[in-house]
Simulated scan of single mutants.
Amino acid sequence: MKKPLSAPDTNRPAKLQAFDRLLTVMDELRENCPWDKKQTLESLRHLTIEETYELSDAILENDLTEIKKELGDIMLHLVFYARIASEQKAFDVADVLNSICEKLIERHPHVYGDVVANDEEAVKTNWEKIKLRTGNKSVLQGVPGGLPPLVKAIRIQDKARGVGFDWERKEQVWEKVEEEMQEFKNEFNATSNEAIDKEKAMAEFGDLLFSLVNYARFINIDPEEALERTNKKFIKRFQYLETESAKDGKKMGEMTLAEMDEYWNRAKSL
């Protein structure tokens, strides 16, 4: 059964007042601003995706000021969608909030009912089973088709694990990585100049990436975050190369690889 909160939220009135203020501002913009009047669910979509990536970047940088700003932008988008839907007599923000509350209560029977779940894995397993009972025909039905492929691989594997379809030990997963690496090497021999079957090589490379994502999951590494951190590291070092070589009167595109490596190695030591 649900336990009482450990301490009352003394700031709840201020939070409710702030949310009410946002709803009021949204209504005023929708009725009085030419740009806001024109927006549709479809026109906001790409902007919301952009804001989500900006939030993700702020989180990776651990920039709390930017996180607060980006959360505000995303919350604006959420109430904007609800406002547009209310104009179409489809639903309003109260329907949205009540809907998610009902779903959370239903899928947390270990908090709001008598089910026992003592660890994270038990919670995930219960979650997937409940979704199957309440209409989902497939465990993978909840994976959005529009997710970036790397993120989609993570979600697919998480959901399969939730119903017990998973390796037992990380050593087994690493053996699969090595197997896929060998299969890829068989399709694409780096020492051969012969033309490769691009479709087969692409399929094997996809299998290799999928297995690496799986291994990362087993050792609690978020592969999407890991890759983004490497992207940022490369950008930082490459920009150092550009800046420092320019100070020495050198131009990108005219230096030898050995010259560029000197700056690159210097950047790695920073």
Rank of each mutant, 00 (worst) to 15 (best):
M26D: 03
M26F: 06
D27P: 04
E28L: 11
L29V: 15
L29K: 06
L29I: 06
R30E: 09
R30F: 11
E31V: 13
C33A: 13
P34E: 15
P34Q: 14
P34W: 13
K37L: 12
K37Q: 15
K38R: 15
K38L: 07
K38N: 10
T40Y: 09
T40Q: 04
E42V: 11
E42A: 09
R45V: 09
R45C: 01
H46A: 02
H46S: 05
L47S: 04
L47E: 12
T48P: 00
T48W: 00
T48M: 02
T48D: 00
E50D: 10
E50K: 08
E51R: 00
E54R: 01
E54H: 02
E54F: 01
L55Q: 10
L55I: 14
S56Q: 05
S56A: 12
S56H: 06
S56P: 00
S56G: 03
D57Y: 07
A58W: 04
I59G: 00
I59D: 00
I59C: 09
I59Q: 00
L60P: 01
L60D: 08
E61W: 03
N62Q: 04
D63K: 02
L64A: 11
T65P: 08
E66I: 07
I67S: 00
K68A: 13
K69I: 09
K69Q: 12
K69L: 06
E70Q: 05
E70G: 00
L71M: 14
L71G: 12
G72L: 10
G72I: 09
G72F: 13
D73F: 03
D73W: 01
I74D: 09
M75T: 13
L76K: 06
H77A: 04
L78N: 03
F80T: 06
F80V: 08
F80R: 07
A82D: 05
I84Y: 11
A85K: 07
A85S: 10
S86L: 07
S86E: 07
Q88W: 12
Q88K: 13
Q88R: 11
K89Y: 09
K89M: 14
K89G: 08
K89A: 12
A90V: 14
A90K: 14
F91A: 01
F91I: 03
D92K: 01
D92I: 02
D92E: 08
D92R: 00
V93S: 01
V93L: 03
A94K: 03
A94N: 10
A94E: 04
A94V: 11
D95C: 06
V96D: 01
V96Q: 02
L97W: 08
N98T: 09
N98R: 07
S99K: 02
S99M: 08
S99H: 00
I100Q: 08
C101N: 15
C101S: 14
E102T: 12
E102M: 03
E102V: 02
K103Q: 03
K103N: 01
L104C: 13
I105A: 15
E106R: 10
R107N: 10
R107I: 09
H108D: 02
H108M: 10
P109T: 12
H110F: 13
H110S: 07
H110Y: 12
V111H: 00
V111W: 02
Y112Q: 08
G113C: 10
G113I: 05
D114M: 03
D114T: 15
D114S: 04
V115L: 15
V116F: 10
N118L: 10
N118D: 09
N118V: 11
N118F: 08
